[in-house]
Simulated scan of single mutants.
Amino acid sequence: MQRILITGAAGRLGRVLRNGLANADRTLRLLDIANLGTPGDREEIWNADATNLPEMIEAMDGVDVVVHLAAFPEEAPWETIFPLNYSLTYAVFEAARRAGVKRVVFASSVQAVGFHPLEKTIDETVRIRPSGYYGVSKACGEALASLYADKYGLSVACVRVASFEPKPTDMRMLSTWLSHEDGIHLFEQCIKAPEHHYYVVYGVSRNTRARVDNSHVAWLKFKPRSNAEDYLADILKNGEPLGPLAGKTQGGGACDVGFSGDIEKTLSAP
């Protein structure tokens, strides 16, 4: 019986994965400071502060895989993002190391590379271009993940989750949408992946306009099925308006927050 620890299990992504990753061959240990309700079959409720290292070491007992979702989940002032997101990620990786847990799936974000233009296809080698302070915290998390893989031998996946929504609601999401079905499938593949060291994978559905390249992890067998183009007519009719950068960047509206630079110069930068 495999035991999977999900941090941030009460969050938007956590609630979907709580249902989607459940099966008869595993126990889900659901961790959050928020109310997680009544545990279902093969569920363990673990109310804890994921920034607290001793609590996290205790939560790792008997765990095979950690799915680390806990974070402040959107663009916000520095004082909101720091130190929370940094402390969360450090505590999870360090607790996993001390407890002997060998595999961590880290929910990074496309916001770590958010200023790359939508018209350009990006792969795992592109320059880190955070869309804001949230994106910086995810880029830092990827660096920490790389350290724990290289120095301590953890097998780590960094999933750059894009627009994880029930359906796409604006023109940018025609490129960046990740359906719930495909998101569950991607995290499942990361949990079950063959032995590995460290990798980055983009969490984007099989959208006609997708501009991400996951060919470097073909062995992961992530085969998304959803296509945002199926919602084009509804988006053209009812789509949410976008700011000057939101419709032109991977990071969308987060790039517009507080922007005072030169749009054309930013979008044309290598």
Score class of each variant (00 low, 15 high):
residue 106 F to C: 01
residue 108 S to F: 07
residue 108 S to C: 10
residue 110 V to F: 11
residue 110 V to K: 01
residue 111 Q to S: 15
residue 112 A to L: 05
residue 114 G to V: 04
residue 115 F to Y: 15
residue 122 I to L: 05
residue 124 E to N: 13
residue 124 E to D: 15
residue 124 E to R: 12
residue 126 V to E: 10
residue 126 V to S: 03
residue 128 I to D: 07
residue 129 R to E: 11
residue 131 S to D: 14
residue 133 Y to N: 14
residue 136 V to W: 03
residue 136 V to P: 06
residue 137 S to W: 06
residue 137 S to I: 05
residue 138 K to A: 06
residue 139 A to Y: 09
residue 140 C to G: 01
residue 141 G to W: 04
residue 142 E to C: 12
residue 144 L to M: 14
residue 144 L to G: 00
residue 144 L to Y: 07
residue 147 L to M: 13
residue 147 L to E: 11
residue 149 A to V: 02
residue 149 A to L: 02
residue 150 D to G: 06
residue 151 K to S: 11
residue 151 K to Y: 07
residue 154 L to V: 11
residue 156 V to M: 09
residue 156 V to A: 10
residue 157 A to R: 01
residue 157 A to Y: 04
residue 158 C to E: 00
residue 160 R to G: 06
residue 161 V to S: 05
residue 164 F to C: 03
residue 164 F to K: 01
residue 167 K to M: 11
residue 167 K to V: 08
residue 170 D to F: 06
residue 172 R to V: 03
residue 174 L to R: 12
residue 174 L to E: 01
residue 176 T to P: 09
residue 177 W to P: 08
residue 177 W to K: 06
residue 178 L to H: 02
residue 179 S to H: 09
residue 181 E to K: 14
residue 181 E to W: 02
residue 181 E to S: 11
residue 181 E to T: 12
residue 183 G to P: 01
residue 184 I to A: 06
residue 186 L to N: 10
residue 187 F to P: 01
residue 189 Q to W: 03
residue 192 K to N: 14
residue 193 A to D: 01
residue 194 P to V: 12
residue 194 P to S: 13
residue 194 P to I: 13
residue 197 H to D: 14
residue 199 Y to I: 10
residue 199 Y to P: 05
residue 200 V to I: 15
residue 201 V to Y: 02
residue 201 V to M: 02
residue 207 N to D: 01
residue 207 N to K: 02
residue 207 N to I: 00
residue 208 T to C: 02
residue 209 R to Y: 08
residue 212 V to Q: 01
residue 212 V to T: 15
residue 214 N to I: 09
residue 216 H to A: 15
residue 216 H to E: 08
residue 217 V to C: 13
residue 220 L to S: 03
residue 220 L to D: 05
residue 220 L to R: 07
residue 222 F to K: 02
residue 227 N to I: 06
residue 227 N to E: 08
residue 229 E to D: 10
residue 229 E to K: 08
residue 230 D to I: 05
residue 230 D to H: 13
residue 230 D to A: 14
residue 230 D to Y: 07
residue 231 Y to W: 15
residue 231 Y to L: 01
residue 231 Y to G: 00
residue 231 Y to T: 00
residue 233 A to P: 08
residue 234 D to F: 11
residue 235 I to T: 08
residue 235 I to V: 12
residue 236 L to A: 00
residue 237 K to F: 03
residue 237 K to I: 03
residue 237 K to W: 02
residue 238 N to M: 11
residue 242 L to G: 00
residue 243 G to E: 09
residue 243 G to V: 10
residue 243 G to P: 06
residue 243 G to T: 15
residue 245 L to Y: 09
residue 246 A to N: 07
